[in-house]
Amino acid sequence: MAAPGVTLRPLSRTVLTASPALSTTTLRIVPRRFPQSLLNRQSPSLHSASRSPLVPHTQIRHSSYHSPEPSPNTPNARKKVTMTTLRNLYKKGEPIAMITAHDFPSARAADESGMDMVLVGDSLGMVAMGLENTTEIVMEEMLLHCRSVARGAKHAFLVGDLPMGSYEISPEQAVGSALRFIKEGRVHGVKIEGGEELAPTIKRITQAGIPVVGHIGLTPQRQNALGGFRVQGKTCVGAMKILQDALALQEAGVFMFVFEAMPPEVAALITSKLKVPTIGIGAGNGCSGQVLVQVDMTGNFQPGRFIPKFVKKYADVWGEATRGMIQYREEVKSREFPSPEYTYPISKEELAKFEKTVDEMIQK
Results as ranks from 00 to 15, higher is better:
44 P>K: 05
44 P>S: 10
45 S>W: 13
45 S>N: 08
46 L>A: 11
46 L>W: 15
47 H>W: 05
47 H>A: 07
48 S>L: 03
48 S>I: 03
48 S>K: 02
49 A>T: 07
49 A>S: 12
50 S>V: 14
50 S>W: 12
51 R>H: 14
52 S>R: 01
52 S>T: 07
52 S>D: 07
52 S>Y: 08
53 P>M: 02
53 P>A: 05
55 V>A: 01
55 V>F: 00
55 V>L: 01
55 V>D: 00
56 P>S: 03
56 P>Q: 06
56 P>M: 06
58 T>H: 04
58 T>F: 10
58 T>C: 04
59 Q>Y: 06
59 Q>H: 04
59 Q>P: 00
60 I>K: 14
61 R>C: 04
61 R>D: 06
61 R>H: 10
61 R>Y: 09
62 H>F: 08
62 H>S: 13
62 H>R: 13
62 H>V: 05
62 H>M: 14
63 S>I: 09
63 S>Q: 13
63 S>D: 13
63 S>F: 08
63 S>M: 13
64 S>W: 15
64 S>K: 15
64 S>R: 15
65 Y>N: 11
66 H>S: 15
66 H>L: 15
67 S>E: 14
68 P>T: 06
68 P>S: 09
68 P>Y: 00
69 E>N: 05
69 E>S: 09
69 E>W: 03
70 P>A: 11
70 P>K: 10
71 S>M: 02
71 S>D: 13
72 P>Q: 07
72 P>I: 09
73 N>V: 04
73 N>C: 06
73 N>E: 11
74 T>L: 15
76 N>R: 01
76 N>E: 05
76 N>I: 01
77 A>G: 11
77 A>M: 09
78 R>Q: 11
78 R>T: 01
80 K>Q: 10
80 K>Y: 12
81 V>L: 03
81 V>I: 13
81 V>P: 00
81 V>E: 02
81 V>F: 06
81 V>A: 11
82 T>Q: 10
82 T>M: 08
83 M>P: 04
83 M>L: 15
83 M>D: 11
84 T>H: 15
85 T>E: 11
85 T>G: 12
86 L>C: 12
86 L>T: 10
86 L>D: 05
86 L>N: 04
87 R>Y: 08
87 R>C: 07
88 N>G: 05
89 L>Q: 07
89 L>P: 01
89 L>W: 03
92 K>V: 06
92 K>S: 13
92 K>P: 01
93 G>Y: 11
93 G>F: 12
93 G>D: 10
94 E>L: 08
95 P>Y: 02
95 P>C: 08
95 P>D: 04
95 P>S: 01
95 P>M: 04
95 P>V: 02
96 I>Q: 00
96 I>N: 00
97 A>R: 05
98 M>D: 02
98 M>I: 03
99 I>S: 03
99 I>K: 00
100 T>S: 07
100 T>H: 03
100 T>A: 07
100 T>I: 09
101 A>M: 10
101 A>T: 06
101 A>E: 07
